[in-house]
Each structure stands twice: as structure tokens, then as C-alpha cells.
């Protein structure tokens, strides 16, 4: 049975699989292209990045006080523009760390704020802020890149196509009637669903790991730092690795749920036209909601939704 189902998916629908993979690759290429076209890039230049990484290596295992002294020394010796770029980036990140550490100190002891930028729920959620870890200086470009790449996530569209071709089309052609009178129909449905779900999981995982590797997030020191170091919401008590894992799991659950819902639609609609109408309007309405009602909740079936908004809305 498994062999027949796998044959059905991979041999008869090779073109579909290729189209899905090409669409995912295309979306990533488009994202990288659009970023390279940006006039004011938020990222460091390549020389500046090298220099910044050297700074990070030199200041490994330092406390924040030692880092201040260290970057002050480097500020005196930085001459070339890319060196200055890296040093000023390091300095501003360090300042951000002090600011976030200040919130924790303020929540613990009532002292420690270093400037007038204060979160708007500091008094209400005092205990939460008091329990946060101390942030440290890391390469935030990687995380920003990762979020950008993830926001070009078109998994729901791919799932829509997959279910459309493999399931909705079968219902439309009445093949389920043929299967229904066969002896092993239960086995067929279970194997088919299992194969499709594992394919979706596989594709999503592969695409996510591509994102992680392209954005350069897979590095040890970076992953263990507190999430507040990335400069996003300071309301999350986790490490960067925990956050990336959370994003992955969230996306995976969305993809699998998406599969389940779309398969149910296909069963009820019993025509490709109805199925396409329902699912595409579903995806597009969710995407529109993610664009217009920003920052309120993570949207399950939204293709191309801004994950940065999602994080600051937690």
C-alpha cells in the first residue's frame, strides 16, 4: 500500500513536487533580491561584518562592564570607515543591553533606568521583568535576516496546491467511490494522509533550515544568548535558540493544521473549483488580516506575514 501511495505522489506528480520546491526557492530568492535592492540597508557591509565578528571574538566571555572598557579602547583606534561602522554598531548594541538590563534592575530594586525609553507595561508586569536574563552583545543582523526570510513563507499556498492536486482532484473525479468499494480503503486513507503530512513536514523543515543557514543564525554563542539581545520585544523570557525553535514549531503546527483543514474542505466541497475558492479566499483573507490588524496575534494560515510584528505582539 505504502509503495502504491508513494508511487502516486512522487512518480505521477513529479511536476507538482518540483513546482512546490521551485516556488519556495523562488520566494527566498525574491526576498534576498529585494533586500539587496534596498537603498538604506539595515545590515552591516561585508567588511564591517568581518570587523564586527572580530570584535565579538575578542570580547567573548566578558561582562558588560568589561565590554564598555573594551569598546572604548577600540573606538580610539578605529580609523577606516568599516571599522567605525562595526564599532558604532557594537556600541549601540551594548547601549541596548544596558537599557534592557536597566528594566530588570528597575523591576528588582526601583533603580537602574539609563534613559527615557521605557516599555509601557513595566509597572504592571514588574515580576516578569525582574526574572529576565542579562542580555549580551550578539550579531543581530542574522536574526533580522531570518525574520525577513520567514516572512516570505508561502507554505499555505504550497499545501493548498498539494491537497488540491492529490485530494480535491480525486474527489472531483469520483475516485473515492472506487476506493470506497475496495477492500483496504481504511489503509489507503491512512497511508495517503500520513505520506502527505510527512511530505509537508519535510518540506517545511527543509525550508526553515535553509532560512536558518542562509541567514547565518546557526552559531553557538549566538543561539544561547538571551532573546532580549536581539533588540526585539523585551517581553519574552527565552534564549534566541528557544525563540527560533518556537517559530519553527509554530510554523510546523500551522502547516499541519492547514493540511487538515484543506483536506476537510476538499472532502466537503467535492469540486476543485469550490475547493480553490474556499482555500484561496481563506489564505488571502488571513493574509489581509495579518497586514491590516497588525501586531495583535500570530495568524495561522497567512502567507507572507511579518514575523517581526508577530514577535512584538506576544
Amino acid at each position: 500500500m505504502l509503495k502504491a501511495v508513494l508511487y502516486d505522489i512522487f512518480k505521477k506528480h513529479t511536476l507538482l513536487i518540483l513546482i512546490i520546491i521551485a516556488m519556495i526557492a523562488l520566494s527566498k530568492a525574491l526576498c534576498i533580491y529585494l533586500q539587496s535592492r534596498q537603498e538604506f540597508s539595515p545590515y552591516l557591509s561585508s567588511e564591517g561584518k568581518e570587523c564586527f565578528e572580530r570584535l565579538l571574538d575578542d570580547s567573548q566571555d566578558m561582562t558588560l562592564e568589561e565590554r564598555s572598557a573594551f569598546i572604548y579602547d577600540r573606538q580610539q583606534t578605529a580609523v577606516a570607515p568599516y571599522e567605525q561602522e562595526a564599532v558604532s554598531r557594537y556600541y549601540s548594541l551594548l547601549q541596548g543591553c544596558y537599557r534592557r538590563k536597566g528594566y530588570t534592575d528597575y523591576a528588582k530594586s526601583g533603580r537602574g533606568i539609563i534613559d527615557i525609553l521605557v516599555p509601557d507595561d513595566l509597572i504592571k508586569n514588574k515580576d516578569f521583568y525582574a526574572a529576565l536574563d542579562e542580555p549580551t552583545v550578539i550579531d543581530t543582523d542574522s536574526f533580522n535576516r531570518l525574520l525577513r526570510l520567514l516572512s516570505f513563507d508561502i507554505t499555505p499556498v504550497c499545501v493548498m496546491l498539494l491537497v488540491g492536486v492529490l485530494t480535491a482532484d480525486r474527489f472531483e473525479r469520483g475516485l473515492d467511490m472506487v476506493i470506497a468499494i475496495s477492500k483496504r480503503r481504511g489503509g489507503f486513507y491512512i497511508t495517503h494522509t500520513a505520506c502527505c503530512v510527512s511530505f509537508v513536514v519535510l518540506v517545511y523543515t527543509a525550508s526553515f533550515f535553509c532560512d536558518v543557514i542562509i541567514s547565518g543564525s546557526a552559531r553557538g554563542e549566538y543561539l544561547t544568548a538571551a532573546f532580549a539581545s536581539t533588540g526585539f520585544s523585551s517581553r519574552v523570557d527565552a534564549s534566541v535558540f528557544g525563540m527560533i525553535l518556537w517559530l519553527y514549531l509554530w510554523g510546523l503546527i500551522s502547516a499541519v493544521l492547514c493540511y487538515g483543514c484543506f483536506a476537510a474542505f476538499a472532502r466537503f466541497a467535492r469540486s476543485t473549483k469550490g475547493y480553490m475558492l474556499v482555500t484561496s479566499s481563506f489564505i488571502l483573507v488571513m493574509t489581509a488580516a495579518a497586514v491590516y490588524i497588525n501586531g495583535s496575534a500570530p495568524y495561522m494560515f497567512a502567507a507572507l506575514s511579518d514575523k517581526g510584528d508577530m514577535l512584538s505582539g506576544i
Binding site: L64, E65, S68, A69, Y72, D73, Q95, Y98, G102, D105, Y106, G110, R111, G112, I113, I114, D115
Partner: peptide, 13 residues
């Protein structure tokens, strides 16, 4: 220069 940034006094903070 080269040390931790100053903490705002109680009133200002």
C-alpha cells in the same frame, strides 16, 4: 568614557 552608562536618579527615572 569606557565605563558603564550612568543610572538616572530616582525622580527622573
Amino acid at each position: 568614557p569606557g565605563s558603564t552608562p550612568p543610572v538616572l536618579p530616582d525622580g527622573l527615572a
